[in-house]
Design a protein around this nucleic acid. Structure first.
Lengths: 182, 182
DNA sequence: TCATTCTGAGACACTGATGTCTCATTTGAG
DNA sequence: CTCAAATGAGACATCAGTGTCTCAGAATGA
């Protein structure tokens, strides 16, 4: 028995990303368990979404850790980061559209921690002369999230090849669309 | 009397962007009308969202037309486009998270028309040697949407100044985060 | 083997949103 | 002013989703 809690969360994320209005019954069926068991694991839909958020944050933080973003050139750090973040992109896309998470006044502090890490990375790149200074680190952080989510959607709809996801995000974020002579 | 249908739609968009789970009653109150009248104007929540989508598409197409994206350098066309698209960004952000719109098999053809226009713009830029060719026009289009939505969110949460929205999107999309010698 | 624990299926009541209706009131045109 | 049209407020039934419960059956471990 022993329901694999994490597997349930992954199935839920996968379904909810495509259909955020999915029923608890649909979520349960997608996870291969019964609605009763789903309710035993997560006390209500809200708790499920919160757990999803918690898992997403944890995986993002793990990705940040693996990418060792404080070492070496900031541009390379961004490349590693996006690479590591790629598997989390789908879940991020769901959480991104779940703005219910951000309207309460008890937002998960994990996002602030993550933001701080990324903002620090971009600021480091600016201070090292790698990144332009007319775009604020906060905006660059938001843009990174946004591009990641957009790319996940595009892949999900078959408009972009999965293998191109990470390079697309990285190249656009760092280099932009214009041709430049480096 | 004569309820201003468009004003109702704008109020609904403004509310639904922040709280996509808002009740029809809340929407009505936000628009300054009664729930009965709201239901007289839009037969059900679904019809309301569809009308919102229709309005969003129309405004985007109007913005595209005003930006005359087929004239002059593609980069300048993108700048004009983002400038014109800025007022629609909030509504776009709502529609972007309303993935219910895209799961049915009767998607609004307006999106395809818009996509085609933008894809053509980026392709033109590539053929003119302005844009790099290792990022597909489809991806650049998705990235434009994504950055616009991210920026709208960032502004909405006070992380980015409203006046910087358009330049942030344009600069990042075209030039990227790296410092380059042009 | 037995006992414990967990699961699945179904039934149940409850809640909240929705759509519809009525009726008094207000608005605006003629 | 007069009247038709539209609005607001409220009541109402309906419905889908939810959370809880029970019970039988399966899995697990001693």
């Amino acid at each position: 028995m022993a329901v694999d809690r994490e597997q349930v969360l992954r199935a839920a994320a996968s379904l909810l990303m495509r259909k955020s209005s999915a029923t608890m019954d649909e979520v349960a069926r997608a996870a291969g368990i019964s609605r009763a068991t789903l309710n035993r694991q997560f006390a209500g839909r809200d708790a499920l979404v919160r757990a999803l958020e918690e898992l997403g944050i944890a995986e993002c933080e793990a990705a940040v850790a693996r990418a060792v973003i404080d070492d070496g050139p900031a541009a390379d750090a961004v490349r590693r980061l996006v690479q590591e973040l790629e598997p989390v992109a789908r879940q991020l896309a769901f959480l991104y559209s779940e703005n219910q998470l951000f309207e309460g006044d008890k937002q998960n502090a994990g996002w602030a921690r993550l933001d701080a890490r990324l903002v620090a990375l971009f600021r480091r790149g600016q201070e090292a002369g790698e990144f332009r200074i007319d775009l604020s680190p906060v905006w660059l952080t938001e843009a990174l999230y946004g591009l990641l989510v957009s790319a996940a959607w595009a892949v999900c709809e078959g408009r972009v090849a999965p293998k191109d996801l990470s390079s697309n995000v990285t190249e656009l974020l760092l280099g932009g669309a214009l041709r430049t002579q480096k």
